[in-house]
Computed example of a mutant assay.
Amino acid sequence: MCRSGTFWAPWGQLTDALVGIGSLEPSPLLQRSGNAVAEADQDELRRLGAVGDVCFRFFDEEGKLVRSTFDQRVIGVTAKELLAVPRRIGVTGGDRKYSAIRAALLGGWVNILITDLAMAHRLLDGA
Rank of each mutant, 00 (worst) to 15 (best):
Gln42Arg: 06
Arg96His: 14
Phe56Gln: 15
Gly93Ala: 06
Ala40Glu: 14
Lys97Cys: 14
Asp95Val: 15
Ala36Met: 03
Leu83Asp: 12
Glu62Met: 03
Asn35Pro: 00
Asp95Glu: 13
Thr92Phe: 06
Gly93Asn: 06
Gly63His: 06
Gly49Gln: 07
Ala40Arg: 10
Gly94Ile: 06
Val54Met: 04
Asp53Asn: 06
Ala40Asp: 15
Val37Ser: 08
Asp71Glu: 11
Arg57Cys: 01
Glu62Thr: 08
Ala79Gln: 09
Asp53Met: 02
Leu82Lys: 08
Cys55Asp: 15
Ser68Asp: 09
Leu45Arg: 00
Asp95His: 15
Lys97Ala: 14
Ile89Met: 12
Gly76Asp: 15
Glu44Phe: 12
Val51Phe: 13
Ile75Met: 12
Gly76Ser: 04
Asp53His: 05
Leu83Gln: 13
Val37Ile: 08
Leu82His: 14
Asp43Tyr: 07
Arg73Val: 01
Ser33Trp: 04
Val54Gly: 00
Arg88Trp: 13
Ser68Trp: 09
Gly90Phe: 13
Val91Pro: 13
Gly34Gln: 14
Arg88Val: 13
Val37Pro: 06
Lys97Tyr: 15
Ala40Ser: 12
Gly93Phe: 11
Val66Glu: 08
Lys80Asn: 00
Leu83Pro: 11
Val91Leu: 11
Gly90Pro: 15
Arg67Phe: 02
Glu39Pro: 07
Leu65Ile: 05
Glu61Arg: 01
Val66His: 08
Gln42Tyr: 03
Phe59Gln: 05
Ser68Ile: 08
Leu45His: 01
Arg73Gln: 12
Asp71Gln: 11
Leu83Cys: 09
Arg67Gly: 01
Gly52Asn: 14
Phe56Arg: 08
Leu45Trp: 00
Gly63Ser: 06
Thr78Phe: 02
Gly93Trp: 09
Arg47Asn: 03
Thr78Trp: 06
Gly49Ala: 02
Asp60Gln: 03
Glu81Tyr: 03
Gly76Phe: 00
Ala38Asn: 14
Glu81Arg: 08
Thr92Asn: 04
Ser33Arg: 06
Leu45Val: 01
Arg67Asp: 00
Glu81Leu: 01
Asp41Leu: 00
Val74Leu: 01
Val37Asn: 13
Val74Met: 04
Phe59Tyr: 07
Pro86Ile: 05
Val66Phe: 07
Arg96Phe: 15
Gly34Phe: 12
Asn35Met: 07
Arg88Pro: 13
Thr78Tyr: 09
Arg46Ile: 08
Ile75Gly: 09
Arg96Asp: 11
Ala79Asn: 10
Thr69Phe: 13
Ser33His: 02
Ser68His: 10
Asn35Asp: 11
Gly49Pro: 05
Thr78Asn: 11
Val91Trp: 10
Gly52Phe: 07
Leu48Gly: 06
Val74Phe: 03
Lys80Thr: 00
Leu82Ser: 07
Gly63Gln: 04
Asp53Trp: 03
Cys55Pro: 12
Ala40Trp: 12
Lys64Arg: 08
Val77Met: 13
Cys55Trp: 14
